[in-house]
Amino acid sequence: MTVTTPIPAATRIAGVSKTFGKQHVLDDITLDVADGEFVTLLGASGCGKSTLLNLVAGLDTPTSGTVEVPGGRPALMFQEHALFPWLTAGKNIELALKLRGMPKADRPAEAERLLELVRLKGAYRKRVHELSGGMRQRVALARALAQDSKLLLMDEPFAALDAITRDVLHEELTRIWSETNVAVLFVTHNVREAVRLAQRVVLLSSRPGRIAREWEVGIPHPRRIEDADVAGLSVEITEQLRGEIRRHGQH
């Protein structure tokens, strides 16, 4: 199986730099995410992970370089659920469907289908405040999937959850990713989470954010965060990450 034609990309980030005033946040980032690929962006604080996601999401424009998203507007999941509290869980999803242009008659069934996909059948009429943290993030995931975008951006979506719930949502995300054909660009500062989920881990250095190193994760699924393979690679990546952080203390 030799690959001669270039793999269609979910996003192409080419030579992207971003400055806010005098602050150089991102420096010459070049990164492709292939269709259906799962990539995690890893870095300490100040590496510009979230800035990079915002650029890909089109919420901000790069100072130089280009960001291409061939599949149209990417979906984005935040650390907080960002669901609209004036709508029910189902209606939140339907709003995404409506804004994507789906006819009204098809929306309720599709919303139900997406709720079932995140195992929240029967939560259609639930108000956002009636859901637990984990359920809210699952509805948010369903809403993001409702955009039917080829690329799903995730900005530390599980960071605010308790460990047990996070673990379960890792499994759910892996399942949903393998069932749908969506490419995922997942930002985190949690090394094990990055290794647990991704096919490829990209380590960013801080201030300015540059790509420090990449790892292909060959560990077969299903993986668990406690697995020896996951832990082994995590140790290696953590060492590199600590090295990156130490550099900042030296001057």
């Binding site: 935040f78 960002a82 609209f84 709003l95």
Partner: peptide, 27 residues
């Protein structure tokens, strides 16, 4: 502000943003 960003990501801009996000959020 997160709701405004979420609205933008979903494609609620301009008048649709006012109708679906801004007004209900300000209610």
């Amino acid at each position: 502000p997160l709701h405004l960003r979420a609205g933008k990501v979903l494609g609620a801009t301009g008048l649709r943003g006012i109708r679906h996000v801004l007004l209900p959020a300000a209610l």
